[in-house]
Amino acid sequence: MAQNLPNASTTRHSPSVRRRWRKELGAQWPWYLMLLPGLAFFIVFKYFPMYGVIIAFKDYDLLEGIAASPWADPWYKHFEYFYRSTYFSQLLMNTFLISLYKIVFGMAPDIVMALLLNECRKAWFKRSVQTLTYMPHFLSWVIIYGIALAFLSETTGILNRMIQSIGLDAVPFLSSTDWFRSVLVGSEIWKDIGWGAIIYLAAMSAIDPALYEAARVDGASRFRMMRHITLPGIAHVFVLLLILRLGHILDAGFEQVYIMYNIRVYPVADIIDTWVYRTGLERLNFSLAAAVGLFKSFIGLWLVLGANALAKRWGQGVW
């Protein structure tokens, strides 16, 4: 099939090629029929509103509407405003680092959790742990911040009281530039470890048991089976998740940061989205928000394309 494509596009369609195309397309009509409702959804609800990206190149005015609003002068005005703003490089760096830490330190625990649950033989124990670790996902960041305060607060936090009781100084986890990013990453891991494991557990349940059977006959240890059967069995999900997350590398988690940060940690915690939010609060500056969004999306797009190309070499590409 792959060889057909260049033929079809570069040479004139010979009757036989055209016929074969038509035949294949004809044979595939049930598939297209299945795709139809979903594709219609994507076209109507995702692609149709996409004309809105031009707001980034206009001085959008609520009254005039998108079409009638004047073009920005110069066209990159809003991008430049972002680029020249006081904290631009710091915002970019913070966003990138927080996001990167979340990917690097945040994805592995999900897999480890799933692997361990998979190795757990006592059904009741497995289910209890699974449910308990899944529950924090449903707490909103406001509540999690409340919990974080109860444990990590410099004055009232339980952890700090324990630290003080052994004669050490209280650690300002929530207001120190040394600790804050760790708190962000840690609280996210805590929130989503059980939730993140679900997808891997689903992938594991699709692994053919015959593989384990064969390995057991060969005398493989459980650790070896984990490495050589389970892990490869979930690799496709991992790669997919990784690629998708790379696309959102400049989304470092607005709500979490917005709720948890404070003046003291701005230098390490202020991210693009919190800046856009604070700046947008003051003026009806939709064009700026659109420009920043577009910038983030472009970076994400290149990363996704690059990562997919790389993954394809190992036969794991998304498309």
């Binding site: 099939m1 294949e24 397309l25 595939q28 598939w31 795709l35 594709l39 994507f42 609800f45 995702k46 692609y47 149709f48 509103p49 996409m50 004309y51 809105g52 990206v53 707001i55 998108i66 998708l244 696309g247 959102h248 939709f286 928000a289 659109a290 969004g293 577009l294 999306s297 994400g300 797009l301 996704v304 998304v318 498309w319």
Partner: peptide, 25 residues
């Protein structure tokens, strides 16, 4: 084997990265 598979997947993935924003939607 689906014809146009890569294209459709790319188009779908694209919607994860780009969107028209609040107002057009």
């Amino acid at each position: 084997k689906l014809k146009g598979r890569s294209l459709i997947l790319l188009l779908i993935l694209f919607t994860m990265l780009f969107n028209g924003g609040l107002i057009p939607t």
